[in-house]
Write a protein that binds this DNA or RNA. Sequence first.
DNA 1: ACAATTTGTGCAATCGATTGCATATTATTA
DNA 2: TAATAATATGCAATCGATTGCACAAATTGT
Lengths: 342, 342
Amino acid sequence: MKPKKTTIHDIADKLNITASTVSRALNNNPRISDTTKKAVLDMAKDLHYQPNNIAAALRSGKSQLIGIIVPTINRSFFSSVIRGVEEVANTLNYRVVVSQSYEIFENEVATVNAMLNARVDGVIASIGKNTKNYEHYTNLIKKGIPLVLFDRTTNKIGTSQVVIDDFLGGYMATEHLIQQGCTKIVHFTSSKKVNIYKDRYRGYKEALNDYNIAFNESLVCKGNMQLEDGRIAAEQLLALNKEFDGIFSSSDYAAMGAIQILKEKGIKIPEEVAVAGFSNEPFTSFTDPALTSISQFPIEMGRAAAELFFDMLHTEKKKFIPQKTVLQPELVIRTSSLKTIK
Amino acid sequence: MKPKKTTIHDIADKLNITASTVSRALNNNPRISDTTKKAVLDMAKDLHYQPNNIAAALRSGKSQLIGIIVPTINRSFFSSVIRGVEEVANTLNYRVVVSQSYEIFENEVATVNAMLNARVDGVIASIGKNTKNYEHYTNLIKKGIPLVLFDRTTNKIGTSQVVIDDFLGGYMATEHLIQQGCTKIVHFTSSKKVNIYKDRYRGYKEALNDYNIAFNESLVCKGNMQLEDGRIAAEQLLALNKEFDGIFSSSDYAAMGAIQILKEKGIKIPEEVAVAGFSNEPFTSFTDPALTSISQFPIEMGRAAAELFFDMLHTEKKKFIPQKTVLQPELVIRTSSLKTIK
DNA sequence: ACAATTTGTGCAATCGATTGCATATTATTA
DNA sequence: TAATAATATGCAATCGATTGCACAAATTGT
């Protein structure tokens, strides 16, 4: 009935040798003669042998699985990071198991736990916005399971991280607007709890400072960074008759929302208000005007995370020192901010 | 040194019972008394017991893993489908292992194989553009491993599928353009080998036919469906002085490329040329004009695929009949095609 | 009060691959 | 040529959980 899967024992029986020898032959163990190796390989092919990673994992304690936890998979940034990780993992014969937290703390904890049960060899994760307690992550570390955080990270637990230099990104975007002649620059940001927004905000302030532009708190809008939040913020600014000639939004979506409102009101972009976003979402090149943004190189971030992960995996826990890879962001200038045509 | 993981045997020892009982208690087996169950559960918590799915998988033959194979993870459509699958899988205590084929046949084959080695309980996949040989998939079926194909599928192997009604989508988009007054409608399509493009093309033709508009093959452009292909196609049409007042592109990207050229040439959209794309990519609502498109409900598609998957999983192979879930597409009308304001 | 059930646990094999140690065979050296 | 070293393979335990079957104790029926 069922085509009874073939195991190393079946191969062994056919060749009148033992499973140990077959196992060693398949793993190219130097203690096995080339003749035997060839015989085993041939027989394996004949019998359509399919290795059972599960059995190997149980015995060896290595599942060849990497768990990836992200708030949501279908966001360009996250899926691109996953892509980068998968790319590297795949070449090293590792698979990735992905799971979403939906920004819900309980899910994040449950997911870490599920990964633990699945016996992943390690975890690569981006922390949910509402996560303030990191016990589920420190548990991993305690158990000696490699953990690499990316983008939304924390320094509160000693583990490797990959981030872009958000401070620099914020600085670059702001500086660019200043260089385009803006002096009254609005900033859209979010909760100060999340490292990335905090750093971009710092970059914004620093740039203003460096160019001797007074920081004006009333030009800073806090929101949830979605399209709608950008629309609301822009409407309020206009309603309150705030004067501004530039917007640096920590999110492309919010920037887009603001652009929509400005266009509706007949305000010219970039002539009257120059706009820069953050993340370089795929849509930024398709909008009108195309949106200036900061690229975070998500695929590279995924690759970097995978590399740190494998570093950890190959280092003994006691002599491990957490690494932090900081990627350089890139300012992608598009028409939404480009006043001067050179 | 190492905190030695606790197993069911450790729990058993502490309670002076056997591992069998512990296993049954943890699995809420009715043959175990409530008293014992509680004792086991408490002890499990005390000892920080973490189930080992690998061991269970080896014994039971069920890994609780679903393999997902897509051409690339970081495309909105695919990542959204994965999201949908993960959502359902997660509630049923399954994890998803994702892998990319990059549209390369060899990768696809290798990936199926890797999934087999990892002993996934089944596979959900979208076929690469260059795949003409389906042996790697039929192998899965032969082995009794559930396989569900989505979007880019084939009828050549008897397995369950989830698709949207691409024919209908093509029809709806074309009909809409016709209703907007277009009579000379260009169509962007790709290789006829891929079912989705073929069906959309058929829908296009059928709509023309139903509205008594002569089909004009010279208005059909074949390309790779990327932004650049749309730009090239549009340029060629203009260079050849083709007359057209509408474009139905089987890809939002190509549609966008065409829009860029039309705008550059000062051709008014939708007044002179109305445009409709396909896929309802996230960027379509951000472009100017916003792009009319056909929504494929990718998250729902993922959920549907997961459901078909679990159906298969719970049906004996012999009495299994391949299912095909056909989702209804939806026309999302935006300004790129909306001539008449009602 | 004794047989027939029902209920709750234990025994031991099993899933498939890996690996430390032992052993047999062959090759090398003094 | 005997002793030593190198080479190739086998033995058996192990990883941790599951499960068919056996069996003892408790409950029910008559």
